[in-house]
């Protein structure tokens, strides 16, 4: 079995946890309003203080969830980053699946079946 056996899915395992440690630690700091404000004042400086690597910084700059996952981000921690910009889970889902938000919501509704 490959390490990542489910298509379209990165299972957050030890390898991802090691790769994403600095990124997730930064996102964990966003539990505090003061830190969210500090990030918004100086994004690059804030990323630097947490030791993000160039790929992680680029993913943060791009607000790109798939890139953030590739860089080791964990969904629960990335949600705290998304929260800074008032993005909800349908915004994030739409971005990752290449759908509009309305299309993504329709996809969720379709899971009800007949």
């Amino acid at each position: 079995m490959s390490r990542q056996p489910v298509p379209g899915t990165v299972i957050f395992d030890g390898e991802q946890a090691r790769k994403g440690y600095a990124l997730n630690k930064m996102c964990y700091s966003f539990n505090d309003a003061e830190n969210r404000a500090a990030f918004l004042l100086d994004e690059e400086g804030y990323c630097g203080r947490y030791g993000l690597n160039p790929g992680q910084r680029e993913a943060i700059r791009n607000r790109n969830v798939l890139q953030l996952i590739e860089a080791g981000g964990n969904a629960y921690y990335l949600a705290k980053f998304a929260g800074i910009f008032g993005l909800d889970m349908q915004d994030i889902g739409a971005q990752q699946t290449g759908l509009t938000k309305d299309q993504f919501k329709a996809k969720l509704l379709a899971a009800r079946g007949a």
Binding site: T9, I92, G93, Q96, T97, K107, L108, A111, G113
Partner: peptide, 13 residues
């Protein structure tokens, strides 16, 4: 439910 990845939005009733 699945929040992350290209498979985001996956539901299995």
């Amino acid at each position: 439910h699945q929040l992350d990845g290209e498979r985001a939005g996956f539901i299995n009733k």
